[in-house]
């Protein structure tokens, strides 16, 4: 029984790639000037909370998602003060008519680059040999449009998906353990990236993947946010 449980734990650990966060960066410090703290554009926080049902279906929960999004925004605002940053929320709808589509393209492009990083930087079988392990991803200099419109130096993208086991799911995990099968419980996954608005380079990127964490409470969201921002250049 004990060995079986150990097996389950090991399986989980393997699945979640041993460490909760995995960071890549091009810089270790933000460029700071005398005049002002670095101005960081906070792109719309993309958070979704789900429940993992008895047999492994994930069901998005609207009320949890609302609360989670709120908690993360508060946590980010606190973080902002601690780090001496000017974190400015970005709202595409408030941008001038003429540039909105263009800025939206930059956000979509970031989605494509972010997916590429998750795939080619983090997954051994999908690594691009030509990169030789280098972390040199970029959205290109067109991001200057975002700088011109908002007067910001960097843009921070924040994405998190959190699922929690229902009571029934926990029971199944126990049964699975008895049968020697690793049944996955709730998982927290997310990524965050920091883009330099002068050249479009993704100067810092972090992926989070762990079987714990809870965005449903303010305290949990603070801990999770700090975890996802591990290693953010100062």
């Amino acid at each position: 029984m004990r060995t079986l449980r150990l097996g389950v734990a090991l399986g989980l650990a393997l699945l979640l790639a041993a460490c909760a966060t995995n960071t890549h960066k091009q810089i270790t410090e933000l460029s700071r000037t005398q005049e002002r703290a670095p101005r960081v554009l906070l792109m719309p926080v993309d958070v979704e909370l789900m429940e993992l049902t008895t047999f492994g279906r994930t069901e998005p929960k609207a009320d949890w998602t609302e609360a989670g999004t709120r908690h993360v925004s508060t946590a980010l605002a606190d973080y902002n003060v601690e780090r001496d940053l000017q974190l400015v929320p970005f709202d595409l709808d408030k941008m001038p008519d003429g540039v909105r589509d263009e800025l939206n393209q930059l956000i979509k492009l970031h989605g494509a680059v972010g997916n590429s990083i998750l795939l080619h930087q983090y997954l051994e079988p999908a690594k691009l040999p030509s990169k030789q392990g280098k972390f040199d991803w970029s959205l290109g200099p067109q991001v200057k449009r975002l700088k011109e419109t908002t007067d910001a130096d960097y843009a921070l993208f924040f994405f998190m998906r959190d699922s929690y086991s229902s009571g029934g799911r926990v029971a199944i995990m126990m049964v699975g353990a008895l049968m020697g099968v690793a049944v996955q419980g709730g998982v927290q996954v997310g990524f965050a990236s920091l883009v330099d608005l002068n050249d479009g380079n993704v100067v810092w990127f972090n992926r989070l993947m762990r079987p714990q964490g809870d965005l449903r409470s303010a305290q949990g969201a603070k801990e999770s946010t700090a975890m996802l921002l591990t290693g953010l250049p100062k």
């Binding site: 699945l15 047999f55 492994g56 699975g176 099968v181 690793a182 049944v183 996955q184």
Partner: peptide, 25 residues
């Protein structure tokens, strides 16, 4: 129906691709 089909996900879990239950979803 969904919860029934997801039992399959556990089966796949044995084969070491547990996360594939997403596909049965």
């Amino acid at each position: 129906q969904g919860d029934l089909a997801a039992v399959l996900g556990i089966g796949l879990g044995v084969a070491g691709v547990g996360a594939l239950s997403n596909i049965s979803n």
